[in-house]
């Protein structure tokens, strides 16, 4: 097994340039997909037999929820790689994920509430999915809080990496316990958020939006990664030609 590709990804200057060239390749497809999915979801897709047009919130809620969890997983794995192989770039990736993940977790939370309100008659109901997203938001805020509380960048990287790993181990357990908690105290009508069987003309825009959001995340991650790599390599020689 030739590990040089692995080392290449470890070398900051290479990653800095690579991220720069790749960004547009993710940004443009993401934009096109999102706009297309927007049109598909709002105009082409027929109204839901139960919720009418209200169900179209799924096109922004589900992708946000998907990103919030996926980004945390990416953050935790990058943190693990950074901690185990002591790779600054991996810590830079983890640092780049935090802001994106937290923002989409908040978005999925609010869109979830907006979606549920007509059904439940109140803005907040202890629906297990909403609660799980809320706890995930706290995990993100804890990560960001710990990072900002430690001045030395190297130490902040490693300490927040431990937290991210502890968090990702606990996340499924927290979700299980919230579901379990919900099942023993039957809360008001639990609304089916994700459609198990959706006709294609409803499902297609959703899949496109999910892919669009994912590509969007990668594009934003690449831009933030360049910033984080620069922050960690300020003294390095290669920074001179790149910056001046």
């Amino acid at each position: 097994m030739d590990w040089t590709w692995f080392h290449k990804f470890g070398s900051p200057p290479h990653v800095y340039r690579l991220a720069g060239t790749l960004t547009p390749w993710f940004a443009w497809p993401a934009g096109i997909l999102i706009i297309a999915a927007l049109y598909g979801g709002l105009v082409l897709a027929p109204p839901d037999y139960q919720q009418g047009d209200g169900f179209r919130i799924i096109y922004v809620h589900a992708p946000s929820a998907w990103l919030s969890t996926m980004v945390y997983a990416v953050m935790a794995s990058a943190a693990a790689v950074g901690l185990i192989w002591r790779m600054k770039v991996a810590h830079a990736v983890a640092a780049s994920c935090a802001g994106v993940g937290a923002s989409f977790t908040a978005a999925s939370l609010v869109t979830g509430m907006l979606w549920g309100e007509p059904m439940w008659g109140t803005w907040w109901v202890w629906d297990p999915r909403l609660v799980a997203q809320l706890v995930l938001l706290f995990l993100f805020l804890g990560y960001i809080g710990l990072r900002s509380a430690i001045d030395d960048l190297g130490r902040a990287d490693r300490a927040s990496a431990v937290l991210a790993i502890v968090g990702v181990v606990n996340l499924p357990i927290i979700r299980y316990s919230v579901e379990w908690w919900n099942s023993i105290h039957q809360t008001p009508s639990v609304m089916k958020m994700d459609r198990p069987s959706m006709p294609m003309d409803m499902l297609a825009p959703l899949l496109m939006m999910l892919l669009g959001f994912t590509l969007f995340f990668v594009a934003v991650l690449l831009v933030r990664l360049r910033a984080e790599v620069l922050r960690r390599e300020r003294g390095a020689a290669w920074v001179k030609e790149v910056v001046s």
């Binding site: 047009d53 209200g54 179209r56 609010v110 007509p118």
Partner: peptide, 13 residues
């Protein structure tokens, strides 16, 4: 009838 919920959700996202 869902305008009051749908558009804020889209705008926020």
């Amino acid at each position: 009838g869902y305008a009051a919920y749908l558009w804020p959700a889209y705008l926020l996202t």
